[in-house]
């Protein structure tokens, strides 16, 4: 369950980061259509919300919120590192 929560949060951050034009261009290439942007944002926030739900399921109310905040930090780090060292060359 912890792993699931972590993956949800990481996926959420990945989607949210790709919803930003600059990062989208660097990683995926090409312009960001507004439809795709909306979809990515929705997926992103859903991921974070699901991560919260999984945390609450794993640890209860008080611990779940605290644990979620901790997971946000740990899940954002790999996404940040990916963006730093993985961008494809722009077409």
């Amino acid at each position: 369950m912890t792993l699931l929560a972590f993956l949800f949060c990481m996926g959420g951050f990945a989607a949210l980061s790709l919803a930003m034009p600059r990062h989208h261009a660097a990683l995926v290439g090409g312009p960001l259509a507004s439809r795709r942007r909306l979809g990515l944002k929705l997926a992103g926030w859903s991921g974070l919300a699901l991560g919260l739900a999984a945390s609450l399921a794993a640890w209860g109310l008080a611990w779940g919120v605290i644990g979620w905040l901790g997971l946000l930090t740990t899940a954002a780090a790999p996404v940040l590192l990916a963006h730093t060292w993985w961008p494809r060359a722009k077409p």
């Binding site: 930003m20 996404v79 940040l80 730093t84």
Partner: peptide, 10 residues
């Protein structure tokens, strides 16, 4: 704060 959240240019 969130736009720059994933930006790190070494």
């Amino acid at each position: 704060i969130f736009a720059d959240f994933f930006t790190f240019r070494p």
